[in-house]
Design a protein around this nucleic acid. Structure first.
Lengths: 232, 232
DNA sequence: GACATTAGTAGCAGCGCGCTACTTATTCGC
DNA sequence: GCGAATAAGTAGCGCGCTGCTACTAATGTC
């Protein structure tokens, strides 16, 4: 074990470094999720797309940068968002930032992108620069893991919604199908929604009852351990 | 809705800002968790304690800074660690960094702190500066949530261990008691450990069989939705 | 040998969850 | 009209996970 000189943290002098806040903004389109990308200047024939990003203005908090970014790229407030992590590995960033802090957010289906930004299928993002590609993957995993604990889907829907709409929103965000009866049973058990007196007929088929988000406090059990770990 | 000028991200010029990597390093002591703090220079009568932190050296990745920090504060490698998030709110940081990226890690019980750093009960950390206090809370929640998916406890233990030791490690990290029979049943079902032929007698009581960590691949089910969300 | 102490197990009861199969209510085609 | 198609919503079975009580097993202490 080699010798080391211990440094008192008060003498730590943080180096000035370039940092950006990058945004993974998602919206439903039909049965799939779309991702907002920024058109980069086309130098030559190639057209490049990037995640929207920006640096901080003076004494602006990280979350403030993210909120400003959202306002810059779409015409409405973000329904839900949270930080997905900081990325400062060797992978080159689009604007050569030393560290990029990624936020992931969702906006409703009809949300208009501002000029210079367009919605793309997630698969189209494979051409992003390496660091942004890593961010996107982490962001998607992050939002799917948060679905059980944060009302992401409810924020995405209007005040009143049908249970089928709710389930479709969950399926889109989770990227997998859910079973109808099980979904509703779990939803009832969680005391998250209350029915309204209204019903909506959507073309053919039986009309659906409208619900609203009205969570009631519940006991937080969670005693044991799950042991869901994957690899060593 | 006010007018906005859309900016192409290629024209984004990230501002140079001060940033640090801060470390929440945990170790078992008896039946409780200890936290490594750095003694700050005592100006006057007050003694202050801080989380270890440092800025990046040139072209050093965020994770590299964290690894270097660990080597600077204890005499062995970290058993497990991961990023806990970036903190860039208005709360004042100890060394006035604009953004602080928090890592949380664990080291075994006997780990020696280097000069200038000492182990403290978690409760003693209440006097940390505001941003570091927030980091600590997030870090603790983070490690507890990762327990189900990452072999944190197994990395903390020696090659061979008893199931009681394993359970105590889980209880310490989770901060709550677990039921013995349920813990072992779930552990068996997860195919995570295999018994050795050795038994260890620890003073009074029946000797305990030794196990080693030997995870086998399992099917990843996880179909439904949990609806564990807390508030609106 | 009685007792304390720790390791480890058996089995019950309840609930969460996936699934199949059903009923109900509406539109469409004829 | 009337049945087929379509979608909403429900009933209930079976199984596996989980919390719990209660037990057995093996050691040290007196």
């Amino acid at each position: 074990m080699r010798e080391r000189v211990s440094r008192a943290p008060t003498r730590v002098v943080p180096r000035r470094a370039l940092f950006t806040v990058d945004l993974v903004l998602l919206a439903p389109r039909g049965k799939h999720l779309m991702l907002l990308l920024a058109r980069a200047a086309t130098n030559g024939t190639k057209e490049r797309w990037l995640l929207p990003c920006d640096g901080p203005k003076k004494s602006e908090s990280v979350e403030a940068v993210a909120r400003r970014l959202v306002r810059d790229v779409v015409d409405r407030d973000v329904s839900w968002f949270e930080q997905a992590g900081a990325f400062g590995d060797a992978k080159r960033h689009a604007v050569t930032a030393d560290v990029s802090i990624c936020f992931v957010g969702v906006v409703p289906a009809q949300t208009q992108a501002r000029p210079g930004f367009t919605w793309h299928p997630i698969a189209d993002a494979a051409l992003l620069p390496p660091r942004q590609l890593g961010m996107l993957e982490t962001a998607l995993v992050g939002v799917r893991n948060r679905m059980d604990y944060a009302p992401v889907a409810f924020r995405l829907l209007p005040e009143e919604f049908t249970l089928s709409e709710l389930q479709q929103t969950y399926e889109m965000l989770l990227g997998r199908r859910l079973h109808k009866a099980s979904f509703r049973r779990a939803l009832q058990a969680a005391w998250l929604v209350e029915p309204t007196d209204e019903w909506r007929s959507e073309g053919r088929g039986r009309p659906a009852q409208l619900f609203r988000y009205a969570p009631r406090r519940r006991r937080g059990n969670r005693r044991g351990v799950r042991f869901d770990l994957l690899s060593g």
